[in-house]
């Protein structure tokens, strides 16, 4: 007989056990076509490269940065989440339905085009058979639903999916979503407590002014409405302007370059060690 620390067990063995069952669910999920689904489970220290690559991408995307920070803080706290990857190679079709959803009049035409033009986008690779994308989504939904059946906090993420996909954690895929599970707590991926103090109030207000300017817009009758930036907006004029931002463009280029470099180095290191 033994007494186990329930919290510790749930955070380690429990999460992995549920991730296994979620992978089963993904494989068992109903299909519209005959799509092959690939799964992998990433745990512990193998999550660090995902965090690091997402933090580079996140410099240009607040949304992705939020996911990177969530996983990083969980790792640092000693309660690592478990990442279930659900992927698919959608770049060919054997259905012969000739449905036209991909934009070609036959599966043959699509296959011939895809063979020649297979290439990466900003997230995943294409072109894609619509039914494989759809089946993959059903499968990842089933995996997430299984996690929910077991009351494990989880979130289906393109971000962790892309990170793991770039690092080659799930080879032979053109699309991959990550379902991050745990740590066990009431709120992990919604209303993220760990995001507290990541942004200041001023950060968020500035972001709001850029994103929903109509709320901050003064009387627009002069065709160049003043922005209500503070109670003194009538005397201290400020306006919105559509402009190029060379700084931002350079940053985006640098991010892409650094991601590429990180991924290449990681893959080389991984190949060496295996």
């Amino acid at each position: 007989m033994a007494i186990y620390d329930g919290n510790k067990m749930a955070a380690t063995e429990g999460l992995l056990e549920v991730a296994r069952l979620c992978a089963l669910a993904a494989l068992k999920a109903p299909r519209v076509g005959r799509t092959e689904i690939k799964t992998a489970i990433v745990t512990g220290d193998d999550l660090w490269p995902v965090v690091e690559v997402l933090e580079i991408i996140g410099e240009g995307s607040a949304f992705i940065m939020g996911d990177a920070i969530a996983v990083r803080k969980a790792l640092e706290a000693g309660t690592p989440p478990v990442l279930l990857l659900v992927g698919v190679d959608a770049s060919s079709s054997e259905l012969a339905w000739n449905c036209g959803a991909c934009g070609f009049s036959s599966c043959g035409e699509f296959n011939a085009y895809a063979k020649k033009n297979l290439g990466p986008g900003t997230l995943f690779a294409g072109p894609s058979c619509a039914w494989k994308i759809l089946d993959h989504a059903v499968a990842s939904n089933w995996a997430a639903a299984a996690a929910w059946q077991y009351n494990v906090p989880n979130r289906m993420q393109a971000s962790t999916g892309v990170g793991a996909y770039l690092l080659g954690y799930l080879e032979g895929c053109t699309m991959c979503v990550g379902i991050t599970m745990g740590p066990p707590a009431p709120m992990v991926y919604y209303d993220r407590p760990i995001m507290r103090d990541v942004y200041t109030e001023d950060d968020i207000v500035e972001m709001l002014q850029r994103n929903i300017p109509s709320i901050f817009e003064g009387f627009p009758g002069d065709g160049r409405p003043k922005i209500r930036h503070s109670p003194n907006w009538f005397t201290e004029w400020r306006f919105t302007k559509v402009e190029r931002d060379p700084e931002l463009e350079a940053k985006a280029a640098s991010i892409a370059e650094r991601v590429q470099k990180y991924v290449a180095e990681f893959r080389a290191k991984r190949q060496q060690s295996s």
Partner: peptide, 27 residues
């Protein structure tokens, strides 16, 4: 019920839509 903005009573979707109606009609 989750993932909302700070000062949500001022920046909710309904407020945003209402403000767009306010400015758009003049614009």
């Amino acid at each position: 019920f989750v993932d909302v903005l700070p000062y949500y009573h001022m920046f909710s979707l309904d407020r945003a839509v209402d403000n767009l109606r306010r400015t758009y009609v003049v614009l």
